[in-house]
Nucleic acid binder design. Structure first.
Lengths: 189, 189
DNA sequence: CCCTCGTTGGACGGCCTGGTCCAAACGGCG
DNA sequence: CGCCGTTTGGACCAGGCCGTCCAACGAGGG
């Protein structure tokens, strides 16, 4: 299957709309017909660009969301070398998730798409890995003890805070969780 | 609607089976017919014991799972007064979730059931509240700084670790997250 | 200019789903 | 023993869903 520029654009439009619908209504309540209606496309186009149908589309959405998660942290994520840059990154993360509320890609990814297929599971795992690596580069640059564990615990705090934000609408979990997870980086060495 | 002992038993059987099915296949992939088949009941029984149908059943399952989460931590949760008792509790929590893997009630609750209705959302919120209160009693008894924040961050670490366990099958997130979240309780005061 | 291949339209079928409904079986209590 | 409400069985319906299929459209290259 080769795609022209026009085809690629259509495909992207479908993925975007599907992602939005899933954020709003959940993956279970998002039918191919909903996507079709939201994008003003036809059934045949959905299966033309996503031959395996629904599963294919969900996978594409998962990859799209995973990319969003990392993109939202750029360029701060790549320069976590000082206490100040860590705080800036933290500010960016908080701002991002407070703004998105329960529509955040990360929450959608883990809660809605994570278990739909082995492929999406893989997407989530890879996201965690690259994210954790980036954080670990930062903690190592800071010269603290147990940098790998600290990086991992920060990731866990974010994921926990986000999923709890999704479930309750309260932002306090993410706020406190991330705050305390970052304490090792604030200590005088 | 009044229920006899037999009726209550049947109802409970339905809830148990539904919970199990949802743990294994997800809420979206669990139909009333599946539940019916797994419990050797008839359609009319489902709607007899859960008049609002699917929504009612899911709510009952959510409450069931929420109770499970707290029950699994008893009696350790009510006696977090020393560093030793905290470690015992931690051991119990880890054992529990490692054993259950991705079938843990907490993960199911937040990922599958949390957003199905305002009522289930409420169940999740209340679970968080009572759980956090219990942890806060412990942190306060330990006389550490910022006990409320520490209690909350512990909760966030568990929730994050569990959801990541569900998504990836890896237990390391829960392990490290919970470990580091507990550091404030290990410091000499 | 036309031929080819990507693109689009939309009807159609078969399946499964949640939910309704009526009637039979059961069991305790007077 | 006979009544009555709970419990149970299962047929049935309407709607929505995914996926298939065939035919028309359009643009770009030869």
């Amino acid at each position: 299957m080769t795609l022209t520029a026009k085809g690629l654009a259509t495909r992207q439009r479908i993925v975007d709309a599907a992602a939005r619908l899933i954020q709003d209504n959940g993956a279970a309540d998002t039918s191919l017909d909903d996507v079709r209606a939201a994008t003003a496309t036809s059934k045949s186009q959905l299966f033309h660009y996503f031959p395996d149908g629904r599963a294919d589309l969900l996978l594409a959405v998962a990859e799209h969301e995973a990319a969003q998660v990392l993109a939202a942290q750029q360029p701060w994520l790549d320069d976590l070398t000082t206490a100040v840059s860590w705080e800036k990154w933290r500010g960016a993360v908080m701002r991002h998730y407070v703004e998105l509320g329960d529509r955040c890609p990360l929450g959608v990814l883990t809660a809605e798409l994570g278990k739909t297929s082995p492929e999406t599971r893989e997407v989530v795992s890879t996201l965690y890995d690259t994210w954790e690596s980036a954080l670990a580069r930062g903690t190592q640059a800071m010269g603290i003890e147990r940098p790998l564990e600290v990086a991992r615990s920060i990731l866990v705090a974010i994921q926990g805070g986000v999923v709890m934000l999704r479930a309750t609408g309260r932002v306090a979990y993410l706020e406190t969780g991330l705050d305390l997870a970052l304490t090792p980086l604030r200590k005088p060495e």
